[in-house]
């Protein structure tokens, strides 16, 4: 529990700035530096008193869309990116598809051509952010704790720490999860879904929301195709069935296959 205001730390996202080493605990309306420096903020507490007996009820018709709070914040992020001519991409996949390896390789190959920075999302640890930092790239880690996805508010706070340059590219690596991140717009230009040949080829129809929400599918680890039972054509057919407009590129982030096509796609999004 936060000693200053009594807010619970449980379940709150933690943002780590890998450049400064500072860590912040994120709450709905304010962030706490975790090193315990002082802060001032107001908390509103509603006190309601209800009594034992009642005299009927009334029905109120509403038309309140859910997820509005996230969608509004996502649009704010989108405007923030647009105003700075920043390309933001949201990389989504199941755990272990090779997102971080792909980012490392992309940074090494394009680092001299494009200004890149990364927001890493994981439930726990800054391991992925450490890997990105080792490439010399600016990176912020968001640990969602019990949360299974990044949301627009987390990205907004992360961006304040990341402070990406105008005209740059921000690559957001979402929490490894093919379900929940599909619902949460972060303000990105596009979602890029990464699948690997060590998974089942039916991922697109098992998790259709994610493939429908994405603009590009990267089929990774194709260097392993001789060793695994994976039908590439069937996987691509499933992907097209769910999203006929989905672009697909076959890549190997370790061996380098297809990466020039991925970089070409990235450049077209940038311009």
């Amino acid at each position: 529990m936060c000693a200053t205001c009594g807010c619970s730390e449980e379940g709150g996202a933690v943002i780590t700035n890998l450049q400064t080493g500072e860590r912040f605990l994120m709450h709905d309306d304010h962030d706490h530096p975790i090193n315990g420096s002082g802060h001032v903020h107001d908390h509103a507490h509603a006190h309601m008193h209800t009594h034992g007996h009642t005299h009927g009820h009334s029905t109120l018709q509403l038309h309140e869309e859910l997820l509005t709070k996230n969608n509004v914040l996502a649009e704010r992020n989108r405007g923030w990116f647009d105003g700075r001519n920043i390309l933001a991409l949201n990389l989504v996949s199941s755990p272990g598809s090779g997102k971080t390896t792909l980012l490392e390789r992309t940074i090494r190959d394009l680092g001299s051509e494009l200004s890149l920075s990364v927001i890493e999302g994981d439930q726990e640890t800054a391991n992925d952010a450490e890997r990105i930092r080792a490439t010399g790239c600016k990176v912020v880690q968001i640990n969602t704790g019990t949360g299974c996805h990044l949301d627009a508010a987390m990205v907004s706070r992360g961006l304040k720490q990341l402070d990406p340059a105008s005209g740059s590219v921000v690559l957001i690596e979402n929490v490894g999860n093919l379900v929940c991140p599909a619902l949460f717009d972060l303000g990105e230009r596009a979602k890029v879904v990464v699948v690997s040949v060590t998974e089942g080829e039916d991922k697109p129809i098992k998790y259709p929301h994610m493939f429908r929400a994405s603009e590009l599918m990267l089929l990774n680890k194709i260097d392993l195709l001789p060793y695994v039972k994976f039908d590439v054509e069937r996987c691509l057919a499933y992907a097209r069935q769910v999203n006929p407009r989905l672009h697909t590129i076959l890549i190997s982030a370790t061996r380098g296959d297809g990466l020039q096509d991925w970089y070409a796609w990235l450049r077209t999004q940038k311009n």
């Binding site: 009642t54 005299h55 009820h57 009334s58 029905t59 109120l60 509403l62 309140e64 997820l67």
Partner: peptide, 23 residues
Amino acid sequence: TDLDWLTGEELRITEIEIELEET
């Protein structure tokens, strides 16, 4: 397979029933 969804994406509160205030 290129389909424009018409319905099925609804996610909203449409009604609440409120206890009336005591007299």
